[in-house]
Design a protein around this nucleic acid. Structure first.
Length: 493
RNA sequence: GGCGCUAUCGUCUAGGGGUUAGGACGUGAGAUUCUCAAUCUCAAAACCCGGGUUCGAUUCCCGGUAGCGCUACCA
């Protein structure tokens, strides 16, 4: 296959083909998302092809909801893929290849009933389990006879034994890896219900789809020896492997949906108001670095900088807790990306959050508000709480004591608010005019700006901490400001 | 139990035979400011342990320890 690139260079067989192969057994979690991102970056950096393959051979555990959740997550990330497959639609290929392997004598039928759970303490005391007694040695005739009689069986790989065979591959991240074939157990290719196992289906598809690089979690590092054996039985050259360090929870264990819940789901980040670019940026810094001091990186920066050589070998902790479900660094990077976004784009990101909160949010107003809060929010969702008073018809109840400035009393607050009423009624409603008029008024009252502005700010916003006063007044408009100051005066009465 | 992988501030990481071991987040202090943010400055904070190699190891080697992964007819 030859692909003509936009810059019209022709890439030959060297153009990599990578794949992301999630199994739909739950929501898309951050570890999977990172694997997807690294594959994507590798593909784009090298002008290769990104394949999405749903590894859905575990019928028991697959759900449609999970498929949906994975696509939701991937769509949100905004990273595309070039080809899409479902393993469940390729079962004939898997079974055919299993038969071919069996025909070559590289696999055998195991009629031992599947045993559930971990009742093999006795064998673990001795060492590793390698095969079920008697099954490997069954003659072809005997095996055929029992199969014909309707006995169910699993198909197992006949791992080379007693030859001292060394299995070897060079991992792009972990370097040279070797293992004695004698230590690899006779793993299953086909289950007794005829369904392919993950190992078989995955390798058959990787070979068939011409995958050149397998970039996946380190939990598969030792499985790779089995996969080498399968590729060999398939007469297919093994792809290049690159294993990624695992993402772990603060307790050190691998991130899991079961154990850690929705805090590891991609959609949780989306709903909290992370920007996809920020989320991707954060995930990339877990187990990879550009080897310079850059941390804030756009998708373009990441694509340009990403190499497998830059991947680390040690597991990375995603630092979340009960109190703060998001890693502080993720939050910080998100705030940076929020500030880097053009206001118009940020405003349209904020729009749905405001609408969801039930605000009457016209695009014009949202744009004006966005300018005032963009340095004050770290995740989009916070905008709702930070800007509610811009949209509310009536201010939420607040403590009138807030109206009283430091070293002042209620009488002082009243004087300030009354002066403000006059000024606001008579001054053109723009930033500079209000700035001058309000400062002059403060001077006349013999007050410092801070003292004078607090009552006004609280009257108008219903809280002490808010965006700068004059901009806020302008966005709110004269009528609303005067009305709220009037209400504040009644509170002080 | 067996096999494998890993080990630098609390966290993410840079670095590498001789360095004041660098950056970022977080934390603390200060500056600035109409509050809050943002911004800026400063501070505290790390080479798992033991051997070896070497003039010299945090860096290379071995051992230990710890953590993680795999050890399913899950993926």
């Amino acid at each position: 296959m030859r692909i003509t690139m936009p810059d019209s260079t022709v890439i030959g067989a060297a153009a990599p083909r990578v794949r992301f192969a999630p199994s739909p057994t739950g929501f898309l979690h951050v570890g999977s998302a990172r694997t997807f991102i690294f594959n994507w970056l590798y593909a784009r950096h090298n002008h290769g092809t990104m394949v999405l393959r749903l590894d859905d051979t575990d019928v028991e555990r697959n759900t449609q909801a999970s498929v949906q959740s994975i696509f939701d997550g991937l769509r949100w990330l905004g990273l595309d893929w070039d080809e899409e497959y479902k393993q469940s639609e390729r079962l004939d290929l898997h079974r055919g290849q299993a038969e071919a392997i069996f025909a070559k004598g590289l696999a055998y039928r195991d009629f031992t009933p599947a045993h559930a759970g971990d009742d093999n303490q006795s064998s673990s005391a001795q060492g590793a389990w390698l095969s079920n007694p008697g099954m490997r040695e069954l003659s072809r005739e005997e095996s055929d006879r029992r199969a014909a009689a309707g006995e169910t069986f699993a198909l197992r790989y006949r791992v080379p034994r007693g030859e001292g065979r060394v299995l070897r591959f060079v991992d792009s991240v972990y370097g040279s890896q070797t293992k004695l074939a004698d230590e690899v157990e006779d793993f299953a290719l086909l289950r007794s219900d005829g369904m392919p196992t993950y190992h078989l289906a995955s390798c058959v598809d990787d070979a068939d789809l011409g995958i050149s690089h397998i970039i996946r979690g380190q939990d598969h590092l030792t499985n790779t020896f089995k996969h080498l054996l399968i590729f060999e039985a398939l007469d297919a050259p093994p792809p290049q492997f690159a294993h990624l360090p695992l993402l772990v929870a603060p307790d050190g264990t691998k991130l899991s949906k079961r154990k850690h819940g929705p805090v590891v789901s991609v959609t949780t980040y989306r709903d909290a108001g992370f920007l996809p670019e920020a989320f991707i940026n954060f995930l990339c810094l877990l187990g990879w670095s550009p080897k310079d001091d850059r941390e804030f990186m756009t998708l373009g920066d990441l694509t340009a900088a990403f190499t497998l050589e830059g991947v680390n070998r040690a597991n990375a902790v995603v630092n979340f807790s009960e109190e703060s479900p998001f890693d502080a660094k993720a939050v910080h990077l998100n705030a940076e990306h929020i500030r880097a976004l053009p206001v118009e784009r940020l405003a349209s990101c904020l729009q749905p959050f405001f609408e969801q909160a039930g605000f009457h949010a016209t695009p014009e107003k949202v744009l004006a508000v966005t300018q005032l809060i963009r340095e004050r929010i770290k995740v989009l969702r916070e905008a709702v709480g930070a800007a509610d008073f811009f949209f509310a018809e009536e201010l939420a109840p607040y403590d009138p004591a807030e109206l009283i400035p430091q070293k002042g009393d209620a009488a002082l607050a009243r004087r300030v608010l009354e002066a403000a009423q006059q000024v606001l009624a008579a001054t053109p409603f723009d930033h500079d005019s209000l700035d001058k008029a309000l400062r002059d008024a403060a001077t006349q009252l013999g007050l410092k700006a801070g003292q004078a502005f607090q009552p006004i700010r609280v009257a108008v916003c219903g809280r002490k901490n808010a965006p700068p006063l004059f901009e806020t007044l302008v966005v709110l408009g004269r009528d609303v400001c005067l009305k709220r100051i009037g209400q504040a005066l009644t509170k002080l009465a």
